[in-house]
Design a protein around this nucleic acid. Structure first.
Lengths: 144, 144
DNA sequence: CTCGATGCAAAGGTTTTGCACCAGG
DNA sequence: CCTGGTGCAAAACCTTTGCATCGAG
């Protein structure tokens, strides 16, 4: 089923006028296979290269991420420190609670932010992209 | 009054066992003078050097930021992209709405997040550090 | 064939670290 | 004095860009 999702990504890229190449296939497969692992550009790079005979450059990974984002298939989220994490757009939307001490990241449902999003939009004319940020704090093990 | 606040920072540093040096004085003064300008390490560096006869190294700024954070006098917030912004802890707490297109940053009151913070804490055993992240989205000029 | 995509290398921006010297307490 | 702080230089880290070559369509 990872292959199905990867195929869908590939086809969507093609439909958007992007070329389908071996590195992109590997990247999309890695993305589909590890979709809930909070992939970063560099872990995605590693996973993609693992499925590929040839070397894949990290810049190719970034350019493919750009292509997928332009096609609306992928989002990146900035956790507090560290690199951005990647999420496929057709996933269950969720937010991230990231512990600033240990980096533990908990997923929470999008619903928990909905009222907030709405009131902020009304009051400030600002549309929160609720898939684009993490809520930083302390997990139970690191309170205080 | 900027000097009063700067003096308070300096005294707090001293009380915490940190040494008070010329660069730190300049940094604290700059911090007190520009507290609502969304300072970053590099703009703080510029402002501090401006008030100083001698050169101040950017690494000294980062180390002083660390000291102030250890003393609980300062927080840094990660806006989506770009560098972290700095806030004095004794300020009116607020959040940031950052437009991912133009970087416009709107301050919103802490109260708007309170219910959310509380329910998340209860449900996930996670304490949101509501001074430590920005809410990324689109401002009115860049909706859609 | 043509233009987009690739690998490689280099650079950019932010933050961190090693080191010898200086100065606060 | 003695330890912590400083400037300087270099590196680490994530990401972007320039360029000649390759290959998808």
């Amino acid at each position: 089923m990872a292959d199905v999702a990867a195929g869908a990504l590939i086809e969507a890229l093609r439909a958007d006028g992007f070329r389908v190449t071996a590195p992109r296939r590997a990247i999309c497969e890695a993305l589909a296979a590890h979709h809930d692992d909070h992939l970063t550009a560099s872990t995605l790079h590693a996973a993609a290269e693992h499925r590929s005979v040839a070397r894949i450059d990290i810049s190719t990974v970034y350019r493919t991420i750009d292509a997928l984002e332009q096609a609306g298939l992928l989002h990146h989220v900035h956790l507090g420190h560290g690199p951005a994490v990647l999420h496929l757009s057709d996933h269950v939307q969720h937010h991230h609670l990231t512990c600033e001490v240990c980096g533990l990241t908990i997923d929470i449902g999008i619903g928990e932010l909905e009222e907030l999003t709405q009131s902020v939009a009304e009051r400030h004319g600002f549309t929160i992209d609720s898939g684009h940020f993490a809520l930083i704090g302390r997990c139970r093990a690191h309170e205080g």
